[in-house]
Simulated scan of single mutants.
Amino acid sequence: MCRSIRTLFNLEPPATSDEVAAAALQYVRKLSGSTRPSQANQEAFDKAVAAVAAASQELLDSLVTTAPPRDREVEAAKAKARAAERFGNG
């Protein structure tokens, strides 16, 4: 899966509709193999992004957990540490 798509469930503050739409866009880009569709495919691309965003939001709204919400700043720090370990500091 595309590395730029992040987990959006159980965060504090909750994921925004913009974050869900951005994840949907990344997914459709990955699936289609195109970051910029041709004019002939733009409408189909946009419909797919909207459908994936709607399904994703429905999923996020339906999921339940007893775990406490994850703090965005803590999760960002963990991701930064993983990236530094993987790619180095320079």
Rank of each mutant, 00 (worst) to 15 (best):
A54R: 09
Q57I: 07
A67L: 12
G88D: 01
Q39E: 14
R3F: 13
A76H: 10
R70F: 07
D46N: 10
R82V: 07
A83M: 10
L59D: 15
D61Q: 07
R82H: 14
A24K: 01
S4L: 12
E73I: 13
S17P: 06
T65A: 04
P13G: 07
V20W: 02
A23F: 04
R82P: 06
N89T: 08
A15C: 04
D46M: 05
E85A: 08
F87Q: 02
V28H: 00
A53I: 03
A79V: 00
P68G: 12
L11W: 02
A54T: 09
R70G: 05
R3L: 13
I5S: 03
A83R: 05
A77P: 02
R86H: 07
R70W: 01
P37V: 06
T65V: 06
Q42M: 11
P68H: 14
A77L: 07
P69F: 02
S17W: 10
E12N: 13
L31V: 15
Y27H: 13
E75V: 04
L59C: 15
T65W: 03
D18A: 11
A83G: 08
V52T: 07
A76E: 15
A67D: 15
A48T: 04
D71G: 09
Q39G: 08
A15F: 00
A44M: 13
T7W: 13
R6H: 12
G88Y: 00
E43F: 12
R36G: 11
K80W: 03
